[in-house]
Design a protein around this nucleic acid. Structure first.
Length: 489
RNA sequence: CGGGAUGUGGCGCAGCCCGGUAGCGCACACGCCUGGGGGGCGUGGGGCCGCAGGUUCAAAUCCUGUCAUCCCGACCA
């Protein structure tokens, strides 16, 4: 049926790439590892961005913008931070080009070498904390709750559209607080926003948890995360919120005067989600017919297809329906294209994941009906034209809920409790491995050993993990709670 | 950086072994017939065969070099 799209069972990776390209989300670019986000993909990203932005602002955050370039010396001020990012930085060394005197075209002018090289930001903690030093003097300046929407560059070895690109778009929040308690509270508040957004808007169920020391952000005291499960049984880290302690305050000498006139270092957090969410969105809901977008994030929620093509009598009814839907705040589009036939249009709209499609022909009009097709179940029904806007409003709510419930049922089905290493290996090597809930002795050595043996990593220690005495699935040493393992993107 | 593969109209590919007018499908443009799940017929436009050398009367094809991309590993949001 669907042309040029690999089925999930045939090859999940190819399926993913086919969806991204055929649904016009993104393309590879002339620059290795960098993608072009196409208008339709960007429209979805804008909806993600706008909703998150609203949630940040509702919780007291404001937006600002910091430079793309970071002086090399800044990056090295926090030891762990530089260790974590040094291997994947793009560096600006010159600022001018010239004609090659030997006729070889344009070359870098060797005389334009920079005194100090500039790093293209892989993340902005350093430049931001260097700036905060001058902004923060007193406890009255705190808390400082700033977010920025930006692009960052991480020179990864292997890239995949949306999931891992050399340049990606994200938001990064950087907050400063007077006390540790307040900073930890902020970290958790953001984690809650991320989880709420993922579940209520993306319809993507997530597990809230804490990263192990091994997986922690470079320079953080504690990293909290939301982890989602994709349809192929691999985990996707969908967002992280870091409690940075006083590490960056100390590295950049950011102190404030407390109420008792004493100097103290500031407490910090940072947190981010990226265009990777687009990958999560695709791999949570889409099927072999194309993309599936939850109604709340769909650029177009309802598309109307005239059968077989626009005509004055059909147009008139369509415009009435559109007005009624728009009055309810529903994003609706009339497909007036004259070139393609209905069957082609149906397939195209399904490929783009539009939640609801209406088909209207003169036959329907004679019956006072319209055909309603929902993208999530592919169900088609005839509905009365009268009051159709209410039916559709309710249907969009139902689709949103159905997508979440379906994804959650799948996710829950693929969380397996495991108590010995033989079972662990068997589960992790299934076609759809999913999460493994198992005991772990708490050491990095064991974590690394398990990764080496199975390619599974500890995705997180769930925040809601109950205390339970057990023994480590690999070493048999005592453990107080289960952690979640999975193969990850 | 190790292993494998590929570069030919916008996209997907054949042609290469065995040198001799650059082809097919899709897409695109126009016309007619169609029209409730990716229509049919016809006509037409579009190419330094990745790049640079070499062999040859003659190179997409053979030789040398080079660049790029993709896949599999190690690194990661």
């Amino acid at each position: 049926m669907a042309k040029e799209i690999t089925s999930r069972s045939e090859n999940y990776s190819d399926w993913y790439i086919d969806i991204v390209k055929r649904a016009n989300l993104a393309d590879n670019s002339a620059v290795r590892g960098c993608m072009v986000i196409k208008p339709y993909g960007f429209a979805i990203w804008e909806n993600i961005r706008d909703q998150l932005d609203k949630m940040f602002k509702e919780t007291g955050h404001v937006n600002a913008y910091f430079p793309l370039f970071i002086p090399k010396s800044f990056l090295s001020k926090e030891a762990q931070h530089v260790a974590g990012f040094a291997k994947e930085c793009a560096v600006v060394t010159h600022h001018r080009l010239m004609n090659d005197p030997d006729g070889g075209g344009i070359i870098v002018d060797p005389d334009s070498k920079l005194e100090e090289e500039l790093i293209v930001r892989p993340t902005s903690e350093t430049i931001i904390w260097d700036t905060y030093r001058t902004w923060i003097n007193s406890y009255r300046d705190l808390p400082l709750l700033i977010n920025q929407w930006a692009n960052v560059v991480r020179w990864e070895m292997r890239t995949r559209l949306f999931l891992r690109t050399t340049e990606f778009l994200w938001q990064e929040g950087h907050t400063a607080h007077a006390t540790k308690e307040e900073a930890v509270e902020e970290t958790l508040k953001i984690l809650d926003i991320y989880a709420t957004f993922a579940e209520e808007y993306m319809a993507m169920p997530v597990i809230r948890g804490i990263k192990t020391a091994n997986e922690r952000f470079a320079g953080a005291e504690e990293t909290y995360c939301i982890e989602a499960l994709m349809q192929d049984g691999k985990a996707l880290q969908a967002g992280t919120s870091h409690f940075l302690g006083q590490n960056f305050a100390k590295a950049f000498d950011v102190k404030f005067l407390n109420e008792n006139n004493q100097q103290e270092y500031v407490w910090a957090t940072s947190w981010g989600v990226s265009t990777r969410l687009m990958g999560g969105l695709i791999m949570t809901h889409s099927d072999d017919d194309g993309l599936v977008v939850p109604p709340k994030l769909a650029p177009t929620q309802v598309v109307i297809v005239p059968i077989p093509k626009p005509s004055p009598v059909i147009d008139e009814v369509v415009h009435k329906i559109m007005a009624a839907l728009k009055a309810k705040g529903i994003r609706v589009k009339y497909d007036m294209d004259m070139k393609n036939r209905p069957g082609f249009k149906f397939a195209e709209h399904e490929m783009h994941g539009i939640p609801v499609r209406l088909a209207i022909g003169e036959r329907d009009l004679a019956n006072g009906q319209v055909e309603v097709a929902r993208r999530d179940t592919k169900e088609k029904t005839q509905q009365a034209l009268e009051g159709i806007e209410q039916y559709i409003e309710d249907l969009l709510v139902e689709i949103q809920a159905n997508l979440f419930n379906r994804a959650k049922a799948m996710r829950d089905q693929y969380i397996t409790k495991v108590d010995n290493f033989k079972d662990f290996e068997e589960i992790i090597n299934r076609d759809i491995p999913g999460f493994i809930s198992a005991h772990w002795d708490g050491t990095t050595e064991t974590e690394e050993k398990i990764k080496e043996l199975t390619k599974a990593t500890i995705r997180c220690i769930p925040l809601d993990a109950e205390a339970e005495d057990g023994s480590c699935v690999l070493t048999g040493k005592p453990s107080q709670r289960r952690v979640l393992f999975a193969k990850a993107y």
